[in-house]
Design a binder for these strands. Structure first.
Length: 366
DNA sequence: TCGCCCTCCTC
DNA sequence: CCATGTGAGGGCGA
């Protein structure tokens, strides 16, 4: 039985949410921006609507450059409001979840889903379900999305990518090979610029060429995990299942400093809100952590870290602050350039064994 | 296993 | 001074 795996992607999500909440801006270029605060327009474009994209603006572009490109075209510049998009996203994902067998959220604007058992492996039924999901989101939220359907996650993801914006692409299992064959390897999920350029050195440009490559050769170059993934996914055969409800493994906060500095105390003092925010996150999710890491991004944008692991999970609010301070002092001594950005990461997350759950464990509710 | 680094993902 | 913020995962030396 072939799996029926879907991938849904909400189109230019943040900017589209803004368009829905103020339809008067729809005809204009819209960019949703992350302002870093170090100068008037420092920061990057997070999302651009298609009007802005036509004028050469894309995600990750510095705001000042985007503004130059949009000069004279009456642009709408909106600071990012993550909470707002989260609320819309949660409503939509709940709606999708109600219409599929399993859903695996992979970001605020995208998710994998599985329709194998509800369709019995019938792709024409899968197509109908995907269409009704799209219609439901349009009806309830006035938002467009793109969906890909295929026999594996890799195929579904490629499908939703090619369907953008607003489309649906169904790749039948028997069409998988011809669908993948001529696509560039860089289109594969997990293949970024570095891996693509390594593959190019081996003379591998397309997914079809990757499928014909010598697995031994790939393993020596990319390691066991990545090569295994590359071989399987090049044939559209990755067997990674759609997994519901996965737990987070780390939380982090990164800020851009007002001014570059190598002074640990100065860096740490600007991190006060980040520390508080991490503590809030820990308590609201009822988690503990074992490892805390200080992260520094230097003026040359290189990243450096120092970390400390505790023997047992901790969640004491003060522990984050005290250890972060020490780690930053350590980090600042080990680097040879100023910090541009600094951050704190906590990982090795575990659920709190609090009094309530402990008593439930000792004396299960009847 | 830890500490650190690298690569990648999305907007 | 153009270059954000969050999270996942793997490799590798010690």
């Amino acid at each position: 039985l072939d799996r029926v795996v879907g991938h849904i992607d909400l189109d230019y999500f943040y900017a589209q949410v803004e368009e829905v909440q103020d339809s008067s801006i729809k005809s204009r270029p819209v960019i949703v921006c992350v302002f870093s605060g170090r100068s008037e327009d420092s920061g990057v474009v997070s999302t651009a609507n298609y009007k802005a994209r036509e004028l050469g603006v894309h995600s990750g572009m510095p705001i000042s450059i985007a503004k130059k490109k949009l000069l004279g075209s009456d642009p709408v510049v909106i600071p990012m409001d993550h909470k707002k998009y989260e609320i819309v996203s949660e409503r939509i994902m709940q709606d999708v979840a109600d219409n599929v067998d399993i859903i695996e959220s992979t970001g605020i604007d995208e998710a994998f889903f599985d329709l194998t058992s509800s369709t019995g492996g019938d792709y024409s039924q899968g197509r109908k379900l995907a269409e009704s999901i799209k219609q439901s989101i349009m009806r309830k939220e006035n938002l467009t999305c793109s969906i890909g359907l295929g026999r594996s996650k890799v195929v579904a993801k490629l499908g939703s990518d090619m369907a953008k914006p607003g489309g649906l692409i169904v790749v039948l299992p028997e069409s998988t090979e011809s669908f993948l064959r001529d696509l560039p390897v860089a289109k594969l999920y997990g293949v970024g610029p570095k891996t693509a350029s390594s593959l190019k050195e081996l003379g591998i440009d397309t997914i079809g060429e990757l499928a014909r490559a010598d697995p031994q050769n790939l393993e020596s170059k990319f390691g066991r995990k990545l090569s295994g993934y590359l071989v399987a996914s090049s044939k559209g055969e990755d067997d990674d299942p759609v997994k519901a409800g996965s737990e987070p493994t780390q939380f982090s906060r990164v800020i851009t400093l007002k001014k570059d500095t190598r002074d640990a105390r100065e860096a740490f003092s600007q991190l006060a809100d980040a520390v508080t925010s991490l503590q809030d996150k820990l308590s609201s999710t009822n988690k503990s952590f074992r490892t805390i890491t200080a992260v520094g991004i230097l003026t040359d944008l290189s990243a450096h870290t120092k970390s400390k692991t505790f023997e047992a999970p901790v969640n004491n609010a003060m522990i984050i602050g005290e250890n972060a301070r020490t780690l930053f002092e350590d980090l600042s001594r080990s680097v040879d350039k100023d910090f541009r950005r600094v951050g704190i990461r906590i990982s090795g997350l575990a659920d709190n064994i609090d009094q309530k759950s402990l008593s439930e464990f000792l004396q299960p509710a009847r």
